[in-house]
Structure formats: structure tokens, C-alpha cells
Design a protein around this nucleic acid. Structure first.
Length: 264
DNA sequence: GCGACAG
DNA sequence: ATCTTGTCGC
């Protein structure tokens, strides 16, 4: 019986941090896309040549820490209809730890991307929206960046909850929540998460007029923050952008179907 | 000891 | 991440 590693050592975490620093050397924080952005006036943005946006997510089976379904969806842009979905049942070997999410979840998603690239390269996503932060991360290399670098694909990190950045940057939960409340008055409003050092980590974004809680957008890989925000906003029919929302909905439905089949 | 803690 | 129905509001 394989033992589930439930308590990574300090040494293990240091090793993971070294891997993150190493991979970060390949990180690109500007637009390196295969579509173009056209800006007409102040707030009107158009993406020319953007056809396919990816969404990825993992869902878990009840209380099982280790049994998950990894999901990749591809949506047509700008209609946001789902044109591809694929699932993979995985047994995760590493527990969730703040700051090291990628080590737990990235492998099955890389596998799904590889399968799509082999079987259906013409609909391979031109940018992927990831459930989890990009450079809004203690070492500026979160899950979305990790996936982007390893797959060499543009990625955008979108967090539903804020991950506090310490180290004197003053990007604390209290500070950010207060600022977000004050500055995000309507759908499309954004608030830059800039630390004391002047460094920008990401943005709090209000998806819609009808939603109060912001989402937290950050650069994943090969895309600027400004473009990331614009892409995310074009994908928001609800608080969470459609690619990640569809990946989440469909992976949970997939699990429900599986559970039902067991009983029947 | 206390607070914080992406998914 | 996940356990969970109804309910208030546009």
C-alpha cells in the first residue's frame, strides 16, 4: 500500500521553492500571443484572431484528499460555447499546501493538454484561464504560471479568494478588502494590487454589476496584466469567467455521474 | 501563542 | 476543494 505523503518536510518545501525559482527564469510577463489586441478609444477592446480559450480545473470526490477528476475544456471565442471537454481520473500524491498548489495539480492538466495537442491541434487553446493565481504568489510563481511555463502556453491566473502577500508589501487581506470595497463600484472596475515596493502583483476585478466579491487576476505566462484583465472580463457571464466555470461545473457533473453508476 | 492559509 | 435548500431579489 502506497503511503499518502501527508506531511512534506521543510526540506521538501525548500526543494519545491528551488524548482519554482528555476522555472521562473522562463516566465514571460508580456504579451506573447498568437492573436492581436485592437484598442478603439478608451474602453473598447477587440481581440482579432482569438478563437479558442481553455479552462482547467480539478474536482474532488467527497472527502477524499487524493481522488480527483482533472478537466480541460475549450471554449469558442467570442461565443463562449464549449466545443471540447476531456476528463482524467487521477490519484494525487501530494497534499494541498499554500504556495505549492502546482506540485499537487499540474501533472494531470499537462497530460490533458498533451492529449488535445496530439488528437486535435487545431482547437488547442490560445490562452488558458486557470483556477488559481499566477504571479500573485509569495515567490511570484503560482499555479497558473507553473502550468503556462511547462506547457509553453499563455495562461491567466484567476483566484476566487485573495492570497495575502507579506514581506512588507502591505497586501494584506484587510487592506485589499477595504480598497476593493471602495474602488470597485461597477462591473469591469479593476484595482491594481501594488505593494509598498511599487511592484504590481495582480488586480482585483469586479466581474459584473451584479457581483460584489471581486476575483483576483494575475499574469500566468506570456500575457500582460492589462490583456489578462481584458480577456477575463470578456469571458464573464457570472463572477467566475466561463472557461474555469465550465471546467468546474463539468468536472463536478462527471463525478456525480460516476457516483451514481456505482450505486446503480 | 496567534493569525493566515490559491485549490 | 467539499458538506448543502431554500430563499431573497432583479
Amino acid at each position: 500500500m502506497e503511503k499518502y505523503n501527508n506531511n512534506p518536510s521543510i526540506a521538501q518545501k525548500e526543494e519545491w521553492a528551488r524548482v519554482q525559482s528555476e522555472l521562473k527564469l522562463k516566465l514571460i510577463e508580456t504579451d506573447a500571443l498568437n492573436f492581436t489586441k485592437i484598442v478603439n478609444g478608451e474602453n473598447i477592446v477587440e481581440f482579432r484572431g482569438l478563437n479558442y480559450i481553455g479552462g482547467v480545473d480539478l474536482s474532488f470526490i467527497e472527502n477524499h484528499e487524493e481522488d480527483a477528476i482533472a478537466t480541460l475544456v475549450v471554449l469558442k471565442y467570442p461565443s463562449l460555447e464549449v466545443i471540447y471537454e476531456n476528463f482524467s481520473s487521477v490519484k494525487l500524491k501530494i497534499p494541498y499546501m499554500t504556495g505549492f498548489l502546482a506540485f499537487r495539480e499540474v501533472t494531470p492538466l499537462l497530460d490533458l493538454l498533451q492529449i488535445l495537442k496530439q488528437r486535435n491541434p487545431d482547437i488547442f487553446p490560445q490562452v488558458i484561464i486557470v483556477d488559481g493565481n499566477g504571479i500573485l504568489h509569495p515567490r511570484r510563481f503560482g499555479f497558473a504560471s507553473h502550468l503556462g511555463v511547462l506547457a509553453n502556453v499563455p495562461t491567466i491566473g484567476v483566484g476566487k479568494n485573495f492570497l495575502q502577500i507579506d514581506d512588507g508589501e502591505n497586501l494584506t487581506m484587510a487592506h485589499v478588502k477595504k480598497a476593493a470595497r471602495e474602488k470597485l463600484k461597477k462591473g469591469g472596475d479593476t484595482y491594481l494590487l501594488q505593494g509598498q515596493s511599487g511592484m504590481i502583483w495582480g488586480a482585483a476585478v469586479r466581474s459584473l454589476d451584479s457581483t460584489t466579491n471581486p476575483i483576483f487576476v494575475s499574469i500566468g505566462h506570456r500575457i500582460s496584466l492589462e490583456t489578462s484583465i481584458q480577456v477575463v472580463l470578456k469571458c464573464c457571464r457570472y463572477r467566475v469567467p466561463e472557461p474555469t466555470r465550465q471546467a468546474d461545473l463539468r468536472s463536478r457533473e462527471y463525478i456525480r455521474r460516476g457516483q451514481k453508476a456505482k450505486i446503480t
